[in-house]
Amino acid sequence: MDWLNAIVQGILVGGLYAMFAAGLSLIFGVMRLVNIAHGDLIILASYLAWAIVHATGLHPLASLIIVVPLMAGFGYALQRGILNRTLGKDILPPLLVTFGLSVILQNGLLEYFTADSRKLDAGFLETSSFPLLPGINIGVLPLLMFVSAVAIIAGLQFLFYRTSLGRAFRATSDDTEIAQLMGLDNKKVYAWAMALCLAVVAIAGVFLAIRSNFDPFMGPGRLIFGFEAVIIGGLGNLWGTLVGGVILGVAQGLGAQVDPGYQLLAGHVTFLLVLAFRPTGLYPRVSG
């Protein structure tokens, strides 16, 4: 029963990993950018939520009303101010600029918030659970996290394939030059994509802060989880990121069941196995 429990809890945590991954997948899909600072931005959102909760006494989830638009605005500005200038044929500038950004964010958070680990308290949300089977309890928070992940991915999927913004994303990704002939300013389209990505990052950051302790140096680890979920699921497939996140969560859960020291290792090894045997991921994007 412990094993089954580990799997169930792993699936639920997978939702959080899918949230880490969805934003990465989105901006890679639109502008082929891999943001090394993605994880640090998640942690930035956690700290923002923490600061807001401590200043206003809002419930952590209510802080989303402020954190989401704040992060989205930051994403828009970041893309227009810095990242747009790095895009081109050469992969080095975006990579190295976001790497620098990652270091700045980590040390900025360290400077302002110290290295002490923090956590958001969501009250009964965290403590409530209900039994699914004898011996297996589902926590309300993990369930909410998973449902939110599904909702976010469904929402992104809808936006991508059913709205004019999504059409602009796809057209710009297909052929930047011709998209400009349709009156689309690709720099603005990219900025909207980054804004959307950081809105998702904001939600992920708040859930992360409720679920566990966080400190300024947790970003790279979250980047890696998100990245692994993207690759396991298959590049460019939003629902694939959910599957990837779940597989990663279950692998970690089972690893931890064997020995707590194997938790992260089991996730990484699963990723490497997928890379070895299914290098395009489980659900590669079918090109038209």
């Binding site: 891999v34 090394i36 790279p220 980047l223 990245f227 692994e228 690759i231 890379l275």
Partner: peptide, 11 residues
């Protein structure tokens, strides 16, 4: 490209 970078990090 950049995914290679993160892959090496995982290793």
């Amino acid at each position: 490209g950049a995914y290679f970078a993160i892959g090496t990090w995982v290793v």
